[in-house]
Write a protein that binds this DNA or RNA. Structure first.
Lengths: 138, 138
DNA sequence: GTAACGTACAACCAAATGGTTATACAAGAA
DNA sequence: TTCTTGTATAACCATTTGGTTGTACGTTAC
């Protein structure tokens, strides 16, 4: 199983969704067993609408899926998104290892690095990539 | 290696910091090699101050560490925090597996028994925990 | 010394977040 | 039918976020 890689926007959504303890809690409950939004909302002191919004955030991040069952919306966790996020974190770890695989960690690609003047300790290994956003990154 | 577990607030900070593509990019660069804030800022079209703010967010999340070197602040990645986040994601996965270890997966566990701090494998795992934002939260 | 560099931070702004209450509607139960 | 439950959404509000410009300050280069 390969598990699709995350686009930058998807990664944004997933990590954002995970960056709130209430939402992490909702996700845990949804993982333990599917349940309606209302039964979820009962567990919190905040308003039903607030919980609903959290569910929506989780849904937009694909961390959960809603499924209508009669008059209820059943919330089900989608572990694939969790795994994708996990994979992205693994890539950071990978970069870390690659750093030490580079012999010396000094004087990397001589290619361009037109004015990497300063920073003698670490010239530009593979860093000469397109600077700004647009997720290019490896 | 045990790797400290994350408090809710730390988890908030880490995932929040990761929920922005510019910050993930900065983190990747910092992982590849330590460098000053200015050399990082050169890679982006946004203002220096904006990059500085992103660095601060990453620092508060302990994803990077700053270290003064002469007049420069050197930004260094702290992979431990990445690993902690990874571990938290693993716990979701773990919950998922426990769900199917429970014989039956009886849904709708009413779950009131407010004492089960031990994550029983059967009925309601730790579902009864004070879900809401306890003291700490924002 | 002065100049340039790297950094820090304040003040400001628009947009997004996280919460509230209130209203509306469909499905089941009585 | 009416009542209740579960859901959805709008309007509103305070705070945070992500960006800007401007100012200030210590360190290094000249």
């Amino acid at each position: 199983m390969v598990i699709q890689e995350l686009s930058e926007a998807e990664a944004d959504a997933i990590f954002r969704a995970l960056a709130d303890s209430t939402r992490r809690d909702i996700l845990r409950r949804a993982i333990r067993h599917e349940q309606s939004i209302s039964s979820l909302a009962e567990r919190y002191t905040m308003s039903w609408a607030a919980v609903q919004k959290h569910v929506t955030v989780l849904e937009r991040a694909s961390l959960i899926v809603k499924e209508r069952r009669g008059k209820e919306q059943i919330v089900r966790a989608n572990l694939d998104s969790v795994r994708r996020a996990s994979l992205l974190l693994d890539q950071f770890e990978q970069l870390w290892h690659e750093r030490f695989d580079r012999i010396g960690d000094i004087l990397g690609s001589p290619a361009e690095a037109p004015t990497d003047t300063g920073v003698p300790l670490d010239s530009a290994p593979s860093d000469t990539a397109p600077p700004d956003k647009e997720g290019t990154e490896r």
